[in-house]
Design a protein around this nucleic acid. Structure first.
Lengths: 131, 131
DNA sequence: ATACTTCTTAGAGTTAACTCCAAGTCAATA
DNA sequence: TATTGACTTGGAGTTAACTCTAAGAAGTAT
């Protein structure tokens, strides 16, 4: 699979893909004789993983560390697991924060909708924060 | 309330608070005669709102726009509502992505835990992505 | 009033994660 | 085979959101 096809599949740019490979977010990608990238199934799985993790804010640095450990072989199984658990903690924390913000947005929007419907503006904006 | 107290309450730095005020993420804060910031209840509510929105990735630019509209008065009610809805869409999209990543992390970690427990490493890492 | 801490501003610097550029090579088509 | 378009690299540039620095003023404890 060409770099262009992979980019379309995951909606990212070639520059991003090359950057991921360069810094080690994904392992080195298979090449054609001419030196062009030709992504194998395995390469693509790494890309998919990277895109997924990045979309949840897992830092590039952590993905690099994971790939490094992976390439060191079975002796790093525990370290890799610990890294994933660390990532999970961070993602869960963000998930919780996002949920709190969603609740607040829903509340504020419902207030606005009411005000728009009734034409009555009976609240100070800053009070929205108070429960 | 002093800048220090507000910072402790929301676990941010004075630099960040001053930055928020400078660029308009929050309206101008009340001052003492000497010119030092003295946050009122209302100021603090704006800070709380900003911190909450930022923690869910709502861009600073959007918060600035909201404050600007707010200060223009009641004629901007609909515009403010629309901005909040826009923010909600983005936050929900991220929430969904974070949940997908959580599921993936949980799956991967459970595979690692199993491997560590049984001592059997019977999978290729890249296969985790498949299903 | 003195010493010490905390605050002020303007503006420069940092960081993460891309994103772009130039110069050149590879691949597909007329 | 010529040309056009996609690919390559190394390195520089960009962006958002802070974060730090310097020089000085304000507030506080003795």
């Amino acid at each position: 699979m060409t770099i262009k096809e992979v980019c379309e599949k995951y909606n990212i740019t070639p520059d991003t893909l090359r950057y991921y490979e360069r810094v080690g977010v994904i392992p080195e990608v298979h090449r054609t004789k001419g030196g062009n990238r030709d992504y194998t199934e395995e390469d693509i799985s790494w890309v998919e993983n990277a895109v997924c993790m990045r979309s949840a804010g897992v830092p590039v640095e952590m993905l690099i560390e994971y790939v490094k450990l992976f390439q060191e072989g079975d002796s790093t199984i525990k370290a890799r697991r610990d890294l994933l658990v660390e990532a999970r903690v961070a993602v869960q924390e963000n998930l919780d924060k996002y949920q709190v913000t969603m609740d607040k947005l829903n509340y504020k929007i419902s207030r606005y909708d009411e005000a728009i419907k009734t034409g009555v503006l009976s609240w100070d904006d800053y009070e929205d924060s108070k429960k």
